[in-house]
Design a protein around this nucleic acid. Structure first.
Lengths: 169, 169
DNA sequence: GTGATTTTGTGACAATTGATACAGTTAATA
DNA sequence: TATTAACTGTATCAATTGTCACAAAATCAC
């Protein structure tokens, strides 16, 4: 029987997944953080940040076997545990615990996507920023404003203005 | 052994799930369509539309057992097949096919959430509208502009302007 | 420590969007 | 059919945001 998971150390700016590849892994973040991003017309658009004890992946590629349209890259020196899809499914058949674990990972990943997706429909840019401050402070604390702005769906300058408005209240 | 699923007909504007309830079901849409929405300061904010052959649920509540913060309501006369969570898990243990089916449902639900979540980070309101036109025309065709606008994260008037701009090109 | 790079703040101006209001149209219902 | 409700378009004006540009501050690499 092969290894279920592999522990790997990555330097900053090393890729876990590149656009065009098929994502066959779930990446469990042990230390550091990473992000997924798109490059559109030369501009970097960050779509997610993943921190310690979270699962990073491109669920669409992982689920369908299609090529990934986004990248996963280390934002800091990173320690990740890589769960290979095939091996995960294989071992899941033999162990109900692994099966449950894997299913919970996907479910919580889905729940988080749903939560973040709703932010853009329900709240203004400023309210989205405040939501992160309250519920996901690690994003605010560890991600630079330049990188955070595209995640919030706004320009860097607007994010700067939002912070300014808040401090003057 | 109890029933795995129940087939139900709902009239328009009947609830499948109400805010404050725990979502213990996956709703497979057989005919018609439904939407999930929030009510914030008296305003209705639509966050998803589900059509034939899709799974509707509040994945966060379903996953965690917490109370749902959103509602699911029929937009047309609706035929749904309701999969109860506990029964689904029970039968999944006995049948690998059901287990695989359930897992695929969750995965494809997650993939779609990820896809829609990215729209707000990558594209302008107009580009989001065009994305729906191209990839999810049924949303454009079957949902009124008034209802669609909050899903796109913009006001009804802005959506009206977008359509006007496009027709004049 | 020093120079280079990245990040952040800010001003000016154009473009977009939201809010409000009202009118015409379409759809739903009794 | 008649009546009501919901939907759509649009005008006006205020507020927000994006873009461009530049300077200060912080961080990184050697």
């Amino acid at each position: 029987m092969g290894f279920t998971s592999i522990c790997i150390n990555e330097k900053k700016n090393e890729f876990l997944l590149q656009q065009g590849q098929v994502c066959n892994s779930l990446f469990y973040i042990d230390k550091g953080f990473c992000k997924s991003f798109f490059e559109i017309d030369g501009a970097i658009k960050n779509t997610a940040f993943y921190f310690e004890n979270e699962i990073a992946t491109n669920i669409k590629s992982f689920e369908s076997g299609q090529r990934s349209d986004s990248n996963l890259i280390a934002c800091e020196p990173l320690t990740v545990i890589i769960f290979d899809k095939d091996k995960l499914f294989q071992i899941a058949k033999e162990s109900i615990e692994i099966e449950t674990l894997g299913r919970n990972c996907i479910r919580s990943f889905a729940a988080k996507q749903e939560e973040f997706s709703n932010l853009y429909k329900l709240y203004s840019p400023q309210e989205r920023f405040e939501y992160l401050e309250k519920n996901y402070p690690s994003i605010i604390q560890r991600v630079s404003l330049t990188q955070l702005s595209s995640f919030l769906g706004i320009s860097r300058e607007t994010l700067s203005r939002i912070r300014k408005r808040r401090f003057h209240k």
